Amino acid sequence: MSETSLNSRVAFVAAPLLVLAYGVIRILDGLDGSRGPGLAWTTGHLAFVAAMLLFVSTFVQMRRMAGRTTLSTVSATAGILGIAALITQFTIDMVVGFMSPDHAHMGELFERIQSVPGVLILVYTGVPLLFYVGQLAIVVQLAAQGRVKAWTPLLVLLDLVLPLVDKDLIPIGALCLLASFAPLAGQVSRTARPVSV
């Protein structure tokens, strides 16, 4: 197995596991009634950023599996744009955590940052959604091609919907994503070849 293939396989498993870690750390951070600043806030955010970096690889691989079609290219590109926005968002969150002596001060800083024209939609409410939309779209394409089981998009959809119901459900959503991505990791090893983006 090539190093590229191994790294791609790892990404399909490690990315959901890192999201799971973020979700669990987030719950633990909130046990005292507030989240951040502190070690748990920073550690959780670092886990999520690491997951996003690995998701770039999963998008590239899923686009290849889908045949590098126009639709898969659009889906992967949208997903990666969403990743860039989410990494920006979580980086801002960490910087705010480092700059704040307490949770109340964090809230004040977030208000100031999010009041800058364009920041809210580009970094918090709009563009980040492209990650989730792109991911679901490309998995649906793979299911339509018979490359993944028909139920796989349902697991991905659960991963997207559960945090909207309650963010404490992020770990369960991450487990759903892990179950849907594990077969894709196997496909990488069977069909690996040099990737051209």
Rank of each mutant, 00 (worst) to 15 (best):
1 M>Q: 07
4 T>A: 15
7 N>L: 15
9 R>Q: 13
9 R>M: 15
17 L>V: 07
17 L>N: 07
18 L>M: 05
19 V>T: 13
23 G>E: 06
24 V>D: 00
28 L>K: 07
28 L>Y: 08
32 D>H: 11
33 G>F: 12
36 G>T: 07
36 G>W: 01
40 A>S: 12
41 W>G: 03
42 T>S: 11
43 T>L: 15
51 A>L: 04
52 M>Y: 09
54 L>G: 10
56 V>F: 09
56 V>A: 08
58 T>Y: 12
61 Q>E: 15
75 S>D: 05
84 A>Q: 02
88 T>G: 14
88 T>L: 12
93 D>T: 11
104 A>K: 08
104 A>F: 11
105 H>S: 13
105 H>P: 02
108 E>S: 14
108 E>C: 01
108 E>L: 13
113 I>T: 04
118 G>F: 07
123 V>L: 03
133 V>G: 14
134 G>Y: 03
136 L>S: 09
145 Q>M: 11
149 K>L: 15
150 A>M: 14
154 L>P: 02
155 L>V: 04
155 L>Y: 02
157 L>A: 14
158 L>Y: 01
159 D>I: 00
165 V>I: 15
168 D>P: 04
170 I>A: 04
173 G>H: 08
175 L>M: 08
177 L>N: 05
178 L>T: 00
179 A>L: 11
179 A>Y: 06
180 S>A: 15
181 F>I: 07
183 P>G: 09
187 Q>S: 14
